[in-house]
Structures are given as structure tokens and as C-alpha cells.
Design a protein around this nucleic acid. Structure first.
Length: 286
DNA sequence: CAGAATGTTTCTCC
DNA sequence: AGGAGAAACATTCT
């Protein structure tokens, strides 16, 4: 489920549901999912209170009393939900946090890609390099045009995978990367360092606006995402290219195409998002 | 049966 | 050093 807007939606739901709750005990059914290993992981959390649920990029940060943070990444299909103690669990429920108020915070993940790790609060970035190396959050205050010009200008990588690189900008995933490129009329195969300052300014505005609107729409439900309240997001109704291959472009009527770029499905309008001449020549040599 | 799926990590080969 | 490409992780769905 998770790009930044979906993770933020989960964070807000969890804050409402379990902020202030106390862990009675923890049940780990799939040990590979947690660090440190199961016995230490479960022992460490007993009796701790969930003081806050924060987010950085696509990572959730559960702030426990006593200076312990649980860093949780949902990867492709991880979900949290809160249920009354003892209500039926599915075979894909892998971690259950039993709360002292007769509720359970459950982590469910059909593909088992998600991971959670305990670290001393404040040491997240040092202990988890991928978290420490995250680029700026995609907001107007943190993602400046000067930064965009600098980092795009020094990379020959094509722009689609560049946007998916969490060390450049935190939070974009495959859906929103395609969407912001369509919004800014940029071809996904354009090398990052060939984007003009105007294009980067447009891209920055698209990223900031798209993240904000998707959060306001409670995220995008395309496969299985649901909020911590078990509700689907709404933003899929606002997607312009993702999953719309074969349909006409809303701007010009051209049929939306789907291609593979860096192993990921990539949707774009071949008319609105033309490849620049220099890049077209570079890709024509096969 | 083959291929894809909202993600990240790791390894190989330039 | 950096980048492209592919594989791995595990499961479901078309």
C-alpha cells in the first residue's frame, strides 16, 4: 500500500487509535519480520506506552516510553489495524501488540516484505542507514528549488527512477512518480540533468501539491490499501495516468501508454510528455 | 503458465 | 564512483 500519503494516513489513524495505549505483551508469528530477534523484541516492549506515532518518508516511527522507537516499514502490502482482544486473525497477521485496554494493534502483510526494528530514540538515522540517508520531505518548506536544481543537475539517471530514489526526495513511489511527471508534462525517460529550471520548478510544485492532496484524500487504494480504520483511500479517483493505460489522456486525448522503466511499470502520455530531442537520440541507438 | 503488483536491498557487471 | 540491470524477499491475482 505505501507511498508517503498512505503512510501518513496510517500514521494519523494510529495516532487517534493507539496514542497513549500501553503494551501488555507482543506476539510475533513471523520472526523474520522483527529486529532484534523475537524474544528480545517482545521482551523490550512489555509495559511501554505508545507516546506518539511519527513518520519520516515511508517509515512509521512508534515512540515508546523509556526512549525506545520502533521503526516500521510497510513495504508493498503492510497494514496496521486495531481490533478488540481475541477477534479472529487472518493467516497474514504476523505481529500482534496486545494492549492493556483489551484491544490489539495488529500488523498484517500478505507478502511478508514489511520489517520492524527497535532502536534507541534519536539513533534511528545512525542505526538504520536507509532512514538516515532519506532526502527531504516533499513539502514547500523542506523541498527547495535550489536543492532540486542541485541534485537533478548532477545526475544522468533518467527521471522516473530518480524520483523513486528515497535519498533524493523522501516519499514518492511508483504511482505518484508517474502522476507528478504527467502533471509537469515531463517524459519519464528524460535524464535528470536535462530538465530545465522551469521544468524542475514545475515538478517541485507538482510533487508538493500532489502529496498534499493525496494526504487530504486519505491516500490511494489500488490493490489493498486501507486506513487504520479499515477504510479505502479516495485519491485513486484523482489519478491521471497510473493504471490508465489504453485510456485517453485527460489533457489531449492521446492514448496513455505503459512501458517498463528500471523494471517498474511506467504510465505516461506520449503527446503531453514528449522525450526531449537529445534524449530521444540517446535512446534511439539500439 | 507467465507476468505483475503501492518497495527496498543486494549483487554483478561494466 | 556510479549506474544499469537483475535478483531476492513471498504471495496473490489476472
Amino acid at each position: 500500500m505505501p507511498e508517503l500519503p498512505e503512510v501518513e494516513t496510517v500514521r494519523r489513524g494510529l495516532t487517534r487509535l493507539v496514542q497513549g495505549a500501553t503494551i501488555d505483551h507482543v506476539e510475533v508469528r513471523y520472526p523474520k519480520m522483527v529486529t532484534p530477534e523475537r524474544d528480545e523484541f517482545t521482551a523490550e516492549l512489555i509495559g511501554r506506552q505508545i507516546e506518539a506515532v511519527d513518520r519520516r518518508g515511508k517509515y512509521l516511527l512508534f515512540r515508546f516510553s523509556g526512549g525506545v522507537t520502533m521503526v516500521s516499514h510497510l513495504r508493498m502490502e503492510g497494514k496496521y489495524d486495531v481490533q478488540p482482544e481475541g477477534s479472529p486473525v487472518t493467516k497474514h497477521t504476523h505481529v500482534i501488540f496486545h494492549l492493556t485496554d483489551d484491544r490489539e494493534l495488529r500488523y498484517t502483510d500478505t507478502r511478508k516484505f514489511g520489517r520492524m526494528q527497535l532502536v534507541p530514540t534519536g539513533e534511528e538515522g545512525d542505526r538504520m542507514p536507509s532512514l538516515g540517508k532519506l532526502g527531504p520531505e516533499p513539502t514547500a518548506a523542506t523541498l527547495t528549488l535550489a536543492y532540486m536544481v542541485r541534485i537533478f543537475g548532477k545526475s544522468h539517471k533518467v527521471v522516473k527512477p530518480f524520483l523513486l530514489d528515497q535519498t533524493k526526495i523522501a516519499g514518492l513511489g511508483n504511482i505518484y512518480a508517474d502522476e507528478v511527471l504527467w502533471l509537469s508534462k515531463i517524459n519519464p525517460l528524460t535524464p535528470a540533468d536535462e530538465l530545465t529550471r522551469d521544468q524542475l520548478a514545475s515538478l517541485r510544485e507538482s510533487i508538493i501539491a500532489e502529496m498534499k492532496m493525496a494526504i487530504e484524500g486519505h491516500g490511494t487504494t489500488v490493490h489493498s490499501f486501507s486506513t487504520a480504520f479499515g477504510e479505502a483511500g479516495q485519491f485513486q479517483n484523482h489519478l491521471h495516468v497510473y493504471g490508465r493505460e489504453g485510456e485517453p489522456c485527460e489533457r489531449c486525448g492521446t492514448i496513455i501508454e505503459k512501458i517498463k522503466v528500471a523494471q517498474r511499470g511506467t504510465h505516461f502520455c506520449p503527446t503531453c510528455q514528449p522525450l526531449p530531442v537529445a534524449a530521444r537520440e540517446a535512446f534511439a541507438n539500439d
